[in-house]
């Protein structure tokens, strides 16, 4: 069990980052801080996926003459798409937060 823990350090790091992000979403009062927490959770999941895709002594998945041992490109493609979708969802949630605070200000006046 200890041996598997030392070789799977990146998985454990991504779990800790996920929990930190979850704490921000659950316990911090500011809405923008909650959205930052969602972003930290997102990047931790990406770290986990890239960790799954790695291979010992594997080359970057760009074909070069004479190299045979490449990393699996599929997790990287999935993560690349998710990164760009993340911008759209983050911007949309920020816009919702801004609209909410402005309507609260209007109600107070």
């Amino acid at each position: 069990m200890l041996n598997s823990a030392s070789s799977n350090l990146i998985y454990i790091a991504s779990i800790i980052l996920f929990l930190v992000g979850f704490y921000a979403v659950a316990a911090r009062p500011n809405l923008i801080k909650k959205i930052i927490g969602i972003n930290i959770m997102e990047t931790s999941v990406f770290l986990f996926l890239i960790g799954i895709g790695t291979k010992k002594n594997g080359a970057v998945p760009i074909i070069v003459e004479g190299v045979k041992n490449y990393i699996n490109p599929l997790p990287q493609a999935v993560v690349l798409m998710a990164l760009v979708v993340g911008v759209g969802t983050t911007a949309l949630s920020l816009i919702l937060a801004v609209r909410l605070s402005e309507s609260e200000k209007e109600e107070r006046q």
Binding site: I10, I50, G53, T54, V60, I71, Q76, V79, L83
Partner: peptide
């Protein structure tokens, strides 16, 4: 991510 062999993702 660059250390894990994903320079494209590091750029993004």
């Amino acid at each position: 991510w660059q250390q894990l062999g994903a320079p494209m993702l590091a750029l993004a």
